Lab assay of single mutants.
Amino acid sequence: MMAYMNPGPHYSVNALALSGPSVDLMHQAVPYPSAPRKQRRERTTFTRSQLEELEALFAKTQYPDVYAREEVALKINLPESRVQVWFKNRRAKCRQQRQQQKQQQQPPGGQAKARPAKRKAGTSPRPSTDVCPDPLGISDSYSPPLPGPSGSPTTAVATVSIWSPASESPLPEAQRAGLVASGPSLTSAPYAMTYAPASAFCSSPSAYGSPSSYFSGLDPYLSPMVPQLGGPALSPLSGPSVGPSLAQSPTSLSGQSYGAYSPVDSLEFKDPTGTWKFTYNPMDPLDYKDQSAWKFQIL
Rank of each mutant, 00 (worst) to 15 (best):
Y4G: 00
M5P: 00
N6V: 14
N6T: 08
Y11A: 02
Y11V: 03
L16S: 01
A17E: 00
A17W: 12
L18A: 00
S19L: 11
P21E: 01
V23K: 05
L25H: 02
H27E: 03
H27A: 05
A29D: 02
A29W: 10
Y32K: 03
P33F: 10
A35Q: 06
P36I: 08
P36Y: 09
R37A: 09
R37K: 07
R41D: 13
E42W: 10
E42N: 02
R48L: 11
E52L: 10
E52Y: 07
E55R: 11
A56C: 02
F58V: 12
A59H: 06
Y63Q: 15
P64S: 14
V66L: 03
Y67K: 11
R69E: 14
A73I: 15
K75A: 10
K75I: 12
P79I: 15
S81K: 05
V85R: 07
N89V: 15
R91E: 14
R91Q: 14
R91H: 15
A92N: 12
K93L: 13
C94H: 07
C94S: 12
Q96T: 08
Q97G: 09
R98I: 03
R98V: 06
Q99Y: 10
Q101F: 11
Q101S: 12
P107K: 05
G109E: 02
G110E: 03
R115A: 01
P116S: 08
K120W: 01
G122E: 01
S124Y: 10
R126P: 03
S128H: 05
C132Q: 08
L136G: 08
G137K: 02
G137P: 02
G137E: 10
P144I: 08
P147H: 06
P147V: 07
S150K: 09
G151M: 07
S152W: 08
T155A: 03
A158F: 13
W163I: 03
P165I: 14
E168F: 15
P170G: 07
P170V: 03
E173A: 11
R176Y: 06
G178D: 02
G183E: 01
A189Y: 08
Y191P: 00
A192Q: 04
A192V: 14
M193V: 10
M193C: 03
T194P: 01
Y195K: 03
Y195I: 09
A198M: 04
A198P: 01
A200E: 00
A200P: 05
F201C: 00
S203F: 15
P205M: 09
P205E: 00
A207V: 04
P211H: 03
S212Y: 12
S213N: 04
F215R: 03
G217E: 05
G217N: 07
S223H: 08
Q228P: 09
G230C: 13
G231D: 03
A233P: 04
P240C: 08
G243H: 09
S245V: 12
L253Q: 03
Q256P: 08
S257H: 04
Y258L: 03
V264D: 01
V264F: 07
D265H: 13
D265Q: 15
F269G: 00
G274M: 07
G274K: 05
W276E: 00
K277P: 00
N281Q: 13
P282W: 13
D284V: 14
P285L: 14
D287L: 13
S292D: 00
F296L: 06
F296G: 00
F296E: 00
